[in-house]
Design a protein around this nucleic acid. Structure first.
Length: 671
DNA sequence: AGCACGCCGACT
DNA sequence: GTCGGCGTGCTC
């Protein structure tokens, strides 16, 4: 007699359904009803069926009432592995959200044709893979992977040429590659780390922020592993491809699974390595409820499943610094420190001077010219477009969109003024401050910088790389590559010089994480330089510039985290934002406060402040130890409000949205 | 979310 | 006496 009860997680965003429901398994379904399969199950009176996943089987019901029978098994494939169900539960609890919302990130939409083909295809086992040493770390990284350690990993800047065998020790920094492609060192390190995991018989998950990083990683992996060992799971690929690769991960042989943020939920056979590249990138923040950051998911998963965790980057996020200081992560760096040659330069002219000549100090100018003799030169700017800022010609105030208050700018030399946020064209703009009607262009975006530089260096090829003009790579030929931050192409052989032009403007942004972000943007751009290629940071001084120049990002993260501790800002503390009607928000805050002043001190309740008509927001901050209790309390309140809706006068059901929304560790209020 | 149950007003 | 209004609560 087999287990006759199936515990099912219902696929629904409703908070009151976020638990396991018991169903009897009818005899005809017994063979198919295994943990992980998608099922249809009646929910509240016959006729209505919900979909869900069997999370576990049991001999007897935990539920006292009479059970319904499972209606059907949607597909025989166990798409929700037990450890992923457990991960989803933990992540949901930590974020005060629902497990099925998390599972939806973990399990891609089913494609029947793909599934049928996969079920019909013969299983074949893959030939074993020999291990490879990560000798630039001595034996520290090899050992860490083998024993399943948690590591904050510093990665060498620069790249290696394809075809050039990565050598065991004393790797010379490659000069110009004779031919073929150039792969960034970080990608090469992660690819070899993954191969080490595979050689030991385990899987590896490698997460990257965006698809450009993904391309780098796939290029690096292609050098060290056969394609049958590599699976790709990213939101950018078509659903059929995504489901096909997802199914491949379920096969018994371990694979390297690469993708963007949600790849941290991938099903992996005997997970041996979970690695994130550049964990400070905001793209790791999940935009869908319950908004769990991929880094946090990775931490939870490692804790649950073991295996090595590697958070690799050029810069150290304050979040990782915190974990290093706690002793939760160990810090591993290459034995021999290689760092870019960074030059700091003050601005010679006021920043609003418009010509490229005025924006680029003469020393930087010389280095750029020198670099162009040998190969490509990178110019990093803050913003895309032509003139990202417009000001009133009469009073000098910045011009803003009449509809949404976004900044007005022009995208091309002759284009109309338009809003950077909503895209609305500001046809008959009038200054709200002085009634002026004329706009003045201020500042230079990527397009204008590219054109200016083209004039300043006649005969030199100019490449414009921004969101609208994406370039993954540029060849090893003289060219000026003007790129917005984060959109820099990878140059074969490395850039002969890197100019970080808009440092001052980037630092001027008002956000809790500006300094951290700037150092990350600059360091990542600097890492694209060729071995002796100079990196020039224009117009920034102080400890931030010094951290880049000395390539000591860890020390900077330590200071930065110490500041956050003093201010009680994240990641020194966790936060919960509660948004909704004033009464509901006040009540939710009250319930958390009732946990005690030790959990939530009165000074750690920020707000409420009005965020819309009839809507307020309060922010709670609390220490990490109290996170579970705060999340549990807020979640309970959400469930309570969803079940017993007694908002407003009796007899009136509150229409539309639920009265509160809860979000843990939302970075937005601090931006 | 849906959908049934339940307890007060107008009805053949 | 009964039909049906919508407020309230639950979903294995």
């Amino acid at each position: 007699m087999s287990a006759s009860i199936a515990r099912v997680l219902i696929d629904s965003p409703l908070p009151q359904l976020d638990r396991l429901f018991d169903y009897r398994v009818p005899e005809p379904l017994a063979a198919l009803a295994v943990p992980g399969v998608r099922v249809r199950a009646p929910l509240r009176s016959a006729g209505r069926v919900a979909e869900g996943w069997i999370v576990e089987l049991a001999e007897s019901a935990a539920f006292g009432g009479t059970l319904s029978e499972l209606e059907s098994v949607v597909s025989p494939v166990a798409v929700l592995a037990p450890e992923i169900a457990a991960l989803a539960r933990r992540v949901a609890d930590r974020s005060a959200g629902g497990a099925s919302d998390v599972v939806r990130l973990a399990v891609p939409p089913r494609r029947v044709r793909v599934e049928k083909a996969w079920l019909a295809s013969p299983r074949q086992s893959l030939p074993p893979v020999a291990p490879v040493a990560l000798a630039e770390y001595g034996s520290a990284l090899d050992e860490a992977i083998d024993r399943g350690a948690r590591v904050a990993l510093r990665v060498p800047p620069g790249g290696v040429a394809t075809g050039e065998q990565t050598r065991a020790h004393g790797e010379e920094r490659a000069g110009a590659p004779a031919d073929g492609r150039w792969v960034l060192r970080w990608a090469d390190v992660l690819a070899r780390a993954a191969r080490r995991a595979i050689a030991a018989g385990g899987s590896a998950i490698l997460a990257v922020p965006d698809h450009r990083d993904l391309e780098q990683l796939l290029a690096a992996l292609a050098r060290v592993l056969p394609p049958e060992r590599i699976a790709r799971l990213d939101a950018g690929q078509p659903d059929t491809d995504r489901y096909r690769d997802f199914l491949r991960c379920l096969a018994p042989d371990p694979l390297v699974i690469v993708g963007n943020r949600s790849v941290v939920y991938a099903p992996a056979r005997r997970l041996a390595l979970l690695a994130l590249w550049d964990d400070g990138d905001p793209l790791y923040a999940e935009p869908l409820a319950p908004y769990a950051n991929a880094r946090d998911v990775a931490l939870v998963r490692q804790e649950q499943q073991g295996g090595a965790l590697v958070l690799a980057a050029h810069t150290r996020s304050t979040d990782v610094e915190r974990l290093v200081e706690l002793g939760w992560l160990e810090s591993v760096a290459p034995r021999r420190t290689t760092s870019p040659r960074v030059v700091l330069t003050a601005l010679q002219e006021p920043q609003d001077a418009l010509s490229a000549h005025a924006r680029i100090p003469s020393s930087a100018w010389r280095l750029a010219r020198g670099g162009l003799d040998a190969g490509p030169v990178l110019v990093q700017v803050a913003r895309p477009g032509w003139s990202p800022l417009l000001v009133c010609a009469d009073c000098g105030q910045q011009a803003r969109c009449a509809r949404c208050d976004g900044p007005l700018g022009v995208r091309t030399a002759s284009g109309p003024p338009a809003c950077a946020w909503c895209g609305a064209i500001a046809a008959d703009w009038r200054c709200p401050h002085c009634t002026g009607a004329r706009l003045l262009r201020s500042g230079s975006g990527s397009a204008r910088t590219a054109e200016d530089l083209g004039r300043a260096f006649p005969g030199v090829r100019v490449v414009l790389a921004d969101g609208e003009h994406p370039h993954l790579t540029v060849p090893d030929r003289p060219a000026l590559v003007v790129a917005t931050r984060g959109a820099e192409p990878v140059a074969d052989g490395g850039y002969r010089a890197v100019l970080l032009l808009d440092g001052e403007r980037m630092v001027a942004r008002e956000s809790l994480r500006v300094a951290e972000d700037c150092l990350r943007w600059w360091s990542n751009a600097a890492a694209l330089a060729a071995p002796e290629g100079p990196v020039v940071l224009v117009g920034v001084g102080g400890s931030l510039a010094a951290a880049l120049a000395t390539w000591r990002q860890d020390a900077f993260a330590r200071e930065e985290l110490a500041d956050r501790r003093r201010l009680r800002f994240p990641p020194a503390v966790r936060t919960a934002t509660v948004t909704g009607t004033p009464e509901a928000v006040a009540e939710a805050v009250e319930r958390v406060a009732a946990l005690g002043a030790d959990t939530l001190a009165p000074s750690d309740v920020l707000g409420p402040v009005e965020t819309g008509p009839g809507t307020v927001r309060s922010i709670l901050r609390f220490d990490y130890v109290h996170g579970p209790a705060v999340a549990r309390e807020l979640r309970a309140e959400v469930v309570r409000l969803a079940t017993a809706r007694r908002a407003g006068p009796p007899g009136r059901r509150a229409p539309g949205r639920p009265p509160i929304r809860v979000r843990l560790d939302d970075p937005e209020p601090f931006d």
